[in-house]
Every structure is written in C-alpha cells, then in structure tokens.
C-alpha cells in the first residue's frame, strides 16, 4: 500500500515475450492506479518499442501485449508514448511515418503515440516517481 499518492512515469526498455517485464509493468500500473496513484504516462524506449507492434500475434493462450496496453489506455487513459527514433530503427512505424518513408504498411496505431525523449522528459517534470521495466 502506498502511503501517499504518487504521480508515476513508467519506462519500458525491454521487449515483450523475451522478457516478462512488460506483464509486470501492466500489473504494477493497474495496482498503482487501484491504490489511488496517478500513472502519467508509459514511455517505450529501446526494445520496449516492440510493445507497440500491432502485427504481434501470440498463440491464443498467451497475452497479446499491444492489446493489453490498449485496454489499459481505454480503462485509465494512461498515455502510451513511443520513442519514434527507437521505433523506426526497429521497424515499428505509424501511418504518418510509413507515408514519409514510403513504407507500404503501418504497424503502430492509436492509442500508441509517437513521441521523442523531449516529450518524455517534459512529462517527467510532472511526475515524482519513475519506474523502469
């Protein structure tokens, strides 16, 4: 139980499936919110950007991480910021960038938002805790 309300920033630097950190992050966020805290945003950096890949299709009995993040956003309005430099380097691309770079498909859609380290550090001014997974 948190003794006082915190405003959290969650930083994801690990990929889905090759690490269980994403699932831990989701549990952490749900619990933090349930206990009255605010989760300001989730920032996906490094291999964390793979969480935003909507082409991901795990076997039916495994959690679909992009969908899990989407439903987290729908339930609690948590902003899902994806470092666009890290994402494009790894083939995670929204419609806008697909057009700009003449790529014939886009695999990153709302509520994932393209962002940069600048947006992350600006939002961080409002937060008092940073948790990395």
């Amino acid at each position: 139980m948190f003794l006082f309300m915190s405003n959290f920033s969650v930083l994801i630097t690990t990929p889905p499936y090759d690490s269980s950190a994403g699932a831990s992050a989701l549990t952490f966020i749900e619990q933090a919110i349930a206990q009255g805290n605010v989760v300001n945003h989730v920032f996906f950096y490094q291999q964390g950007v793979y969480h935003a890949n909507s082409f991901i299709r795990p076997p039916g009995d495994e959690i679909a991480m992009p969908d899990a993040w989407r439903s987290l956003h729908e339930s609690f309005g948590v902003r899902l910021l994806v470092c666009i430099t890290a994402a494009l380097k790894r083939g995670v691309c929204d419609v806008h960038n697909a057009q700009e770079h003449e790529i014939n498909a886009a695999n990153m859609t709302a509520p994932f938002e393209q962002a940069g380290l600048g947006e992350f550090f600006t939002a961080l001014h409002e937060c008092d805790q940073l948790v990395q997974f």
């Binding site: 380290l117 600048g118 992350f120 550090f121 600006t122």
Partner: peptide, 19 residues
C-alpha cells in the same frame, strides 16, 4: 549492444529538457 548509445542519448536529452 545499443545500450551505451541509448543511455547517452537519454542523458543528453534529459539535460536539454531541464533535468
């Protein structure tokens, strides 16, 4: 790995945005 480069980008951006 890319960790060193990513960490250095992270550090410099942090300062640029007021931390």
């Amino acid at each position: 790995s890319g960790d060193a480069q990513d960490a250095l980008d992270f550090a410099v951006a942090g300062v640029n945005f007021g931390h």
